[in-house]
Design a protein around this nucleic acid. Structure first.
Lengths: 178, 178, 178, 178
DNA sequence: GATGAATGAGACTTCATTCAT
DNA sequence: GATGAATGAAGTCTCATTCAT
């Protein structure tokens, strides 16, 4: 009776919302900013999402599903790698090239510390990489690797050139047992 | 010629701002929220700080100076420790007991990824612990330890009970060479 | 797709803004005053006009278009006049009966001296009458007539009874060659 | 018992206020702007003047007394002139070189149209020049000359280069019988 | 006398949300 | 279904004014 809403437009809005989150942070997302970025009518941002919170949450969720695709790719690369630390470092550098996505990840991590509703999402995010790594390393090593990768990414995002310290990351991943 | 009538006023506001950051995130800090939390007139928040950005930045800066005090304490503990991983884990758990401060730290980290003006502050924050650790370990180990501690803290903040996985952290710190 | 629910709303606001300008001057126009005078919600004034400057400029522009109508009427009167000075004086007296419009004209003139963006508007205002007069007189006489009319109007606005010195104006217009 | 307030500082404030009026208009004068421009403590602007209105009025009054000095100079020049239109035009051009004062004059003129309290001031302003001119011309010619001068000045203030149309003014002054 | 600390009022503006179309 | 018109609430900020010093 109610035909499905245009899924194309919905994801256009979500993509725009992800960008706004990366640029301004979750706390500064507004319907207007998202509509402008998505180039859609203002009304459609409230039409597709009950309220702003839902929109932000949906955007973070959308980011997670993109991330899942990324990790699928990582899995394949790791399977054929004969030097896990180097491969992981390379993949991290590639991932960082999309600065917006990387920042969004951290936005989610911190927002989840404040808001319980976001925690499952943040945990799922972490879990993606964790599952990929535990196929090659112990739980402790896997968790440590995730922390090291995140730490290195954050430091890279603080640099104007966005360059990640590959030497450090490779060494640290090795040290941690990978 | 006119001394401040309440010399505490400025730091009262900053403390309130730090709380608001922890509760709502840097992007949701408002004059009203800060004034209400600090129990001062709304006008005070704009009188003491030129604009909201300055207020937020000052609050983060204030948090950093508190953090510096904490690290001073850590230094002393580390000097007399005969088991660095355990000691660091214990100190981290203690630190986490002030949830607001811990969240503020991560808020700063992510905000700095977006806003270049905050980067010096974020780097200084990281630098505090780094300097303490390099007195006991190599640069790579020290950086890795920081990343591991941050990762463990974030995970703890995602738990409703706020419990940090001490076993993991101690093991990981050991693995990384501490 | 959504037509305005009240097509008059915009011009209601502009009319109110013109009144506020006349009563308080361009520098004292506020959204609140305009909204109250127009009897519309405060939000309307910002919805229809991007900011206060735009509102004031639009109001002055609106006043200009009313003025254009007035001058059209003057043109017709002048065409059939056999005594231009007397006719112009009479028309000026009539014009002055709408005190608000007259004051708005001078507000525009002075504001244009300060703000370059308003100068085209002020020049257009002057141009209206100039074009009407040059059909009957030399450029110098036409400009002089405008200055004399303005001078006489200003003096009238300084009188509590608002009476214009018709004798002076007629004589001066004659002297200047009309 | 109450020693006279520092007259130097008072006039410093007034001079600053005149500048602020010229730059922003009477409606946008604030204590802070004046204090900053005058380089005096904020408190002194309220100390020397009961409230903002008084300050603005006093500033306009101060401008008038400067204007009186100017007209004294004009009187002397006119006495020895053998070509009144040319001389007046030259003096007008000189006067215009202080753009701030010229604008302030018009601010006063328009403000007086709105506010009865300012009318005596505006009339006095006009009267200064009128008295100087009636020593050389009829009342009608004198008033007309004032209107022409004002009109030419306003037009000059609307030009980016601030150039007055000297040819027009001289011709018009001649036409009007000077 | 003179100053600047302090604040409540109110200015501008943005925006989530509702709703008529 | 889909949109943008509309607005009340709330946000940022400025400021006249008061007053302790």
């Amino acid at each position: 009776m109610s035909p499905p809403r245009d899924p194309q437009r919905r994801s256009t809005i979500l993509a725009a919302a992800r960008q706004v989150i990366a640029e301004h942070g979750t706390g500064r997302v507004t319907h207007r900013r998202v509509a402008a970025k998505a180039n859609v009518p203002l009304g459609s941002t409230t039409y597709y999402f009950k309220d702003l919170d839902q929109l932000v949450t949906a955007a973070l969720d959308d980011a997670l599903s993109h991330y899942t695709d990324t990790i699928r790719h990582w899995r394949e690369e790791l399977l054929t790698s004969d030097d896990l630390p180097s491969t992981l470092t390379r993949l991290t550098v590639e991932y960082l090239s999309d600065r917006a996505t990387a920042i969004t990840e951290f936005e989610l991590c911190v927002a989840a510390a404040r808001e319980p509703e976001l925690r499952p999402l943040a945990k799922a995010w972490n879990s993606e990489l964790y599952q990929a790594l535990t196929q090659h390393a112990s739980p402790t090593t896997s968790r440590a690797a995730i922390d090291l990768i995140n730490g290195a990414m954050l430091a890279a995002l603080w640099e104007d050139d966005g360059e990640l310290d590959q030497r450090y990351l490779t060494d640290a991943l090795t040290a941690v047992g990978l």
